[in-house]
Design a protein around this nucleic acid. Structure first.
Length: 396
DNA sequence: TCTGGGGTCCTAGGACCC
DNA sequence: TCTGGGGTCCTAGGACCC
């Protein structure tokens, strides 16, 4: 008989904020975790939002993803720091490396979260003690804290890591579901977002326990068959998905730009579209992909989004080809006048096949486009090298 | 106060074919 | 002249995650 699984979910507490705090402290600055502080994008952009908030900031009602301007209103003395992605990547690597020592069966869930399957390693040992060692090792070596959630499946482990923070270990075994999970607000359940919460509450489903008690049939009318079945399983603490060690290949690549003031002229929109096309195509080439579907979308002032996508005859990684498709579709969806808040471009249906097209009708300009892209990639690489060099110097 | 950026998956409806 | 049912592919939109 298979004994029960033991899964850990490890979650860095206020990741970007903690990581920034560690970075600042290395430069002799005080610990921003102890005061109201947030990490944001460009703090000077009035549209930038809170990426991570310290616990004192959260106590003042500041929430992740709210505009920085709003957070400043709640807390005029708030410290606002710009995030440093290169540093975060390094912190993430260090964090995963330590976790992997506890179990090689590791699935990265995001930059600051992972699952590890401890079923084999933990045999005969108290999982809580092992988790405490793991959490302390991360704290002592890397200088930031994590929560470890322990459960008999990924869902329970993940839910457990959300309990009291920071620097804590919690269990949520199947037999604890009724006591620890059912009283929680239904919104706390993984995959229950704002819209689903509204629907469920309209039907009197307020807690995870309420959800667990409903039939799949009654839930299906609310959220569709597949999602209903999943919600019902999860609310009852069941989840048979396994810890996937393989990193899945990307299915799409996209980029978008939000203008600091809603803009409207065709020229401005086209410039933004050109910029995102360069970014997307560059990332496509760097990952050695070709794409056969291009999509473009715009977001209006009222946040409504309109999108068009189109298949192209030959998979491509050429900026100009992608841009031309996007331009044509943009003309389809934009009236040419309405102010636009955001414009985005994506590619999907990605393949690694590099089918050299032998068509007689191949556009003779393609060679020119390819050369243009090659130079773009080269300049980008040089720029990145220079940045990395400057970064390493600064660190010493 | 005025809402980023980057992803995944699901569903519904239309076109088209047999 | 009017008509069923099923399958596949595609697009648009919407939900969720961090």
């Amino acid at each position: 008989m298979a004994h029960r699984r033991v899964i850990f979910h490890i979650d860095v507490n206020s990741a970007f904020l903690s990581w920034t705090a560690v970075q600042l402290m290395q430069n002799g600055l005080p610990d921003i975790r102890l005061v109201p502080s947030v990490v944001s994008g460009d703090p000077n952009d009035r549209r930038s939002i809170v990426t991570a908030a310290s616990i004192p900031a959260k106590k003042m009602g500041i929430k992740t993803a709210e505009p920085v301007s709003m957070a400043l209103r709640k807390c005029p003395g708030l410290i606002v720091v710009r995030g440093d992605w290169e540093w975060y990547r390094q912190c993430s690597e260090g964090f995963l490396e330590i976790c992997r020592r506890y179990s090689p069966v590791l699935q990265q869930f995001s930059i600051d979260e992972c699952f590890i399957d401890m079923t084999l390693r933990n045999w005969g040992e108290d999982p809580v003690e092992v988790a405490a060692r793991l959490k302390d090792e991360i704290k002592n070596t890397l200088g930031f804290t994590v929560n470890v959630g322990i459960g008999s499946n990924k869902l329970l482990a993940k839910m457990a890591s959300e309990f009291e923070k920071p620097d804590k270990v919690h269990t949520l075994w199947q037999e604890e579901v009724e006591e620890k999970m059912w009283p929680l607000d239904v919104r706390e359940l993984l995959w229950v977002g704002k819209k689903t919460e509204e629907k469920l509450k309209m039907y009197g489903i307020r807690t995870i326990g309420d959800l667990a008690g409903r039939s799949i049939g009654s839930l299906t009318r609310l959220v569709g068959k597949k999602f209903a079945a999943q919600l019902h399983e999860n609310a009852n603490g069941r989840d048979d998905s396994s810890v996937e060690t393989e990193v899945p290949e990307a299915k799409s690549i996209s980029a978008e730009r939000t203008f600091s003031n809603d803009i409207g002229t065709e020229k401005e929109i086209d410039r933004a579209l050109f910029n995102v096309a360069c970014v997307v195509a560059h990332r496509l080439r760097r990952a050695d992909f070709h794409a056969s579907c291009v999509s473009v979308f715009i977001k209006y002032r009222d946040f409504s989004v309109v999108q068009r996508q189109r298949q192209i005859s030959q998979p491509t990684d050429i900026t100009a080809v992608i841009l031309n498709e996007a331009r044509a579709m943009l003309r389809d969806i934009w009236d040419g006048e309405s102010p636009i808040r955001q414009v985005g471009l994506g590619v999907s249906r990605l393949t690694h096949e590099n089918a050299v097209q032998m068509s007689l009708f191949e556009d003779p300009k393609l060679d020119y486009y390819r050369e243009w892209d090659r130079k773009y990639d080269e300049e980008k690489a040089q720029h990145e090298d220079a940045r990395l060099l400057a970064y390493e110097r600064k660190k010493q």
